[in-house]
Design a binder for these strands. Structure first.
Length: 439
RNA sequence: GCGGCUAUAGCUUAGUGGUAAAGCCCCGGGUUGUGGUCCCGGUGACGAGGGUUCAAUUCCCUCUAGUCGCCCCA
């Protein structure tokens, strides 16, 4: 093992020295945010009796095509397909969680589990697209699903749980955008009306919207161009064209969210990019003054037809996904302070070969006693080691040299006051526990 | 898939048509077993390729990467 890093550059490398486009290394400094979100979410969901599931990160390509929708952008241009030897692209990295969840639900006969079936998973997801702010090729989500309830109170429950979770994380500056998509039949009829409206006003539309008219008409309502917004304001509203039943469902959701004091607003332009939604859809969006239209950090909705679509029995369901990177972004943005838990309390400084051996034995004991410590056992010289101790902001430094080894003692140095005392080795751990208030 | 911007040490930046400076970080030292300030020293970089030129990190082109935006999404 060389004790210095190579001074000269190694042989010229031909492979890239950066993580693949759109991926990130989550470094130690970043971990505290990461763990804060994932651990809180996991505890929280378990508390609400959501059960954990681990799913493969790739599936048959056909599953996503069927579940997400063959015409959606996700399938059309963002699918991370896997080439398999000798076969075509049979697999794809998962772009979202619901498809796999539904597949697992059907495959393992969860319809016979006590209802509703509440499950969640946390992990990486993949979309092959150009990275930019808040958009990665590998990103991470908490995915939660509730199977077996058609009642609107379940839509409310999911939104409410998310809201409480974000509040617990300390987030405050957001609104829930809410909309209903009715059922496919209602939507289809409505889209016809919508297209008619826009066709009549084709001259007043922006170029993008002319494309949207054929590819994604519901998005027309969402356009930021001023002239298009005026058109959107006069456009027929889906709410006026859905059935009584659908309307009742949505009214219930709105009323109940209001009673629960969840901050929401109805956003007719909210349509979601996946085909499987019915009735309620929602997005948690930061209340930023300008731009940042797509900083949505959680979203979801009801999908009553998907289980059947994928070959199961008709089963109503509601689900949601939390974008971990985006939540972390919000936490930083809102300046939420995290308590660091991995801070070492002790630094072990040693002098001489004998002391190094004893130091390792002491570290073993500290570990067993759950006392977090830091060290640089390879280092010689007291000055350098105490500098380290100082930088690491430990409470105590243990000093261990020739003399202490012979006497079977350790010097305990308080890093704040500089006071030192000699402690018997056998009493070291209990002394530290007492001083660190660990017992 | 399309467009804007950027590309100098691990990080943040400076600078020049003749191969480059600083701060932070890292390593060593400031008399031989003691930190926080300070002082001294050290390692370490012009994304890649091509062109113009006596000479390019500096000018031009291409590529690559990063970043931001469009589309769309977590």
């Amino acid at each position: 093992m060389p004790d210095k890093e190579t001074t000269k550059k190694g042989p010229t490398v031909s492979f890239p020295l950066s993580s693949p486009r759109g991926t990130q290394d989550i470094l130690p400094q970043e971990q505290k945010y990461w763990e804060y979100v994932t651990e809180t979410a996991e505890l929280f969901l378990r508390g609400w009796h959501f059960q954990p599931i681990e799913l493969p990160i790739f599936e048959e390509l056909a599953l996503f095509q069927r579940a997400v929708g063959g015409d959606t952008d996700i399938v059309q241009k963002e699918m991370f397909e896997l080439k398999v030897r000798g076969k075509g692209a049979h697999y794809a990295l998962r772009p979202e969680g619901t498809a796999s969840m539904v597949r697992a639900y059907i495959e393992h006969g969860m319809r016979s589990w006590p209802r509703p079936v509440k499950v969640f998973t946390i992990g990486p997801f993949f979309r092959y697209e150009r990275p930019q702010a808040g958009r990665l090729r590998q990103f991470h989500q908490v995915d939660m699903e509730v199977f077996g309830s058609a009642a609107p109170i379940t839509d409310v429950e999911v939104i409410y749980i998310l809201h409480l979770l974000f509040r617990q994380l300390g987030l405050e500056d957001y609104v829930v955008h809410l909309n209903t998509l009715g059922v496919p039949k209602e939507r289809k009829e409505y889209i016809k009306l919508l297209k008619d409206h826009y066709r009549r006003n084709k001259t007043k539309m922006c170029r993008d919207c002319k494309v949207r008219l054929t590819t994604n008409p519901l998005r027309l309502l969402d356009c930021k161009e001023e002239k298009c917004q005026q058109l959107a304001n006069t456009a027929p509203r889906l709410l006026d064209h859905i059935s009584e039943e659908s309307k009742k469902h949505f009214d219930y959701v709105m009323n109940t969210l209001e009673q629960l004091q969840v901050p929401f607003q109805v956003t007719p332009g909210l349509v979601r990019g996946l085909d499987y939604y019915t009735h309620t859809v929602f997005e948690f969006v930061p209340k930023v003054v300008d731009g940042q239209a797509h900083a949505t950090f959680a979203s979801g909705g009801r999908y009553d037809l998907l289980v059947k679509e994928l070959g199961g029995r008709e089963t109503s369901a509601v689900g949601a996904a939390i974008g971990i990177e985006r939540v972390v972004e919000r936490i930083k943005e809102e300046g939420i302070e995290l308590t660091v838990t991995d801070q070492p309390r002790i630094y072990i400084a040693q002098l001489g070969d004998q002391a190094k051996v004893v130091a390792l034995q002491i570290m073993k004991e500290l570990r067993e006693a759950d006392i977090p410590f830091a060290e640089s056992i390879d280092r010689d010289g007291m000055q350098a080691q105490l500098k380290m101790a100082d930088r690491l902001k430990v409470d105590w430094a243990l000093i261990l040299g020739q003399k202490e080894v012979i006497d079977s003692t350790v010097i305990l140095r308080n890093m704040e006051s500089g006071m030192q005392e000699v402690v018997d080795r056998e009493k070291l751990v209990s002394e530290l526990q007492r001083r660190l208030n660990l017992i």
